[in-house]
Amino acid sequence: MNGIHDLGGMDGLGPINPVKEEPCFKDEWERRMFGLFVSCFAGGHYNVDEFRHAIERMGPAHYLETSYYEHWLASLETLLTEKGVVTQDELEARKKFIAMEDA
């Protein structure tokens, strides 16, 4: 499938800004996201191709505006709800609960 992820040769995306040394993860949520990906992969819930395909199915504007691990989050939410492992309602309810606890 072609799409916005197929970036090879595209002009005008700005400078690369390479950084020589940087932490493996920028935020705690990126750590958890990485661990969730590996755990669910090991649990057999999807293969790498499905995982990437779910990223490639993100809306093009959303894809460009969101960070790398947000792509992972979107992919995991898509795959796990499509496969019936979790439901959108469960995730929404838990999110509200955690936000309330945090307040």
Partner: peptide
């Protein structure tokens, strides 16, 4: 943030 909440919710439910 919204992203932090989504990750926490996913981890918690799973």
């Amino acid at each position: 943030s919204d992203v932090e909440l989504r990750v926490k919710a996913l981890e918690s439910v799973l």
